[in-house]
Design a protein around this nucleic acid. Structure first.
Length: 270
DNA sequence: CACCAGGCTCCGA
DNA sequence: TCGGAGCATGGT
């Protein structure tokens, strides 16, 4: 696993490179500071081993994708080392709602403000962490606010976020998750089309945000967000390749392709 | 000053 | 079903 690529490729918004090679971030109420050299320590810790998806054979998935098209092989090579994190579903949904028509630095800023201590009465969720396996971790000082907390707020309360028109979307999502109309955990098992449709019930959630939530929040590796923003250009850039060809590696393909496109002088211009 | 950002809703063909 | 404007905000 390549720590920098994995944490900064745009699949999550709460990790920073605080100094060269040193990454600090938060997941599920835990805060961690880690370097590439310390990745083996992550494998010893049950929580982080799961979060970084260290038990999945990404090389095998990449090899499978590489066979589909030369350009995809190039993209997979470029993205080698990226793991799809197992983020919390609610945080992922909320994050990708905030990501729409927005760019990464500003998304990070909005999410920072959303998680500010005591902004909505949020508190560290893991008071003690027990064994740390030599890892520099502690309870998160700025945990992600749970849906139950946000569900009680009004759009005016979110004015400080400066997230614009997205505020009403976040609140609708929070209320639906909090009152059970949107049972996120159940979407792990649901057939992909149903899971997508369930997410798109939320005001402000379209196909792209829905698929990103499925992939990054529920680790549905069969979800394929790239289908949305490449759309019909699939045939143009990856002739002969159908979205169904990606199979269980669809999500990974999306991440590879996105990163590759972003790096390669935007060869997929509209 | 335009133009755009890991889109979506709404509206009018 | 499809296309295009508008959307809040901030960076370039």
């Amino acid at each position: 696993m390549d720590l920098r690529k994995t944490l900064l490729c745009g699949q999550c918004f709460r990790w920073r490179e605080v100094s060269p090679g040193v990454f600090t971030g938060t997941a599920a109420g835990r805060e961690l500071t880690v370097t590439q050299a310390e990745v083996p320590l992550l494998a010893a810790d049950p929580f982080w081993r799961n979060y970084f998806d260290l038990e999945t054979d990404y090389a095998a998935l990449a090899k499978q994708l590489a066979k589909l098209h030369p350009r995809l092989r190039e993209a997979a090579n470029y993205g080698r080392g990226i793991h799809i994190l197992r983020q919390e579903p609610w945080e992922a949904l909320c994050s990708f709602i905030l990501s729409q028509n927005n760019h990464i630095p500003r998304i990070q800023g909005i999410i920072d403000r959303l998680c500010e201590p005591n902004a909505w009465g949020t508190q560290p969720t893991v008071p003690t962490l027990g064994s740390t396996y030599g890892l520099r971790q502690r309870a998160a000082q700025r945990p992600f606010p749970p849906p139950e907390v946000l569900a009680e707020l009004q759009v005016e309360d979110l004015a400080g976020l400066r997230c614009g028109f997205r505020a009403k979307y976040v609140l609708d999502a929070a209320r639906r998750v909090a009152d059970g109309r949107l049972p996120l955990e159940e979407l792990r098992e649901a057939p992909l089309p149903q899971a997508r449709a369930a997410l798109m019930q939320v005001f402000g959630v379209g196909p792209k945000v829905a698929d990103c939530t499925l992939l990054y929040g529920l680790h549905r590796m069969d979800a394929f967000p790239v289908d949305v923003w490449i759309g019909r250009a699939m045939e143009r850039w990856f002739p002969g390749v159908q979205p169904t060809d990606f199979g269980a590696a669809a999500g990974l393909a999306q991440q590879y392709i996105f990163d590759y496109i972003r790096s390669s002088d935007k060869f997929l211009t509209k």
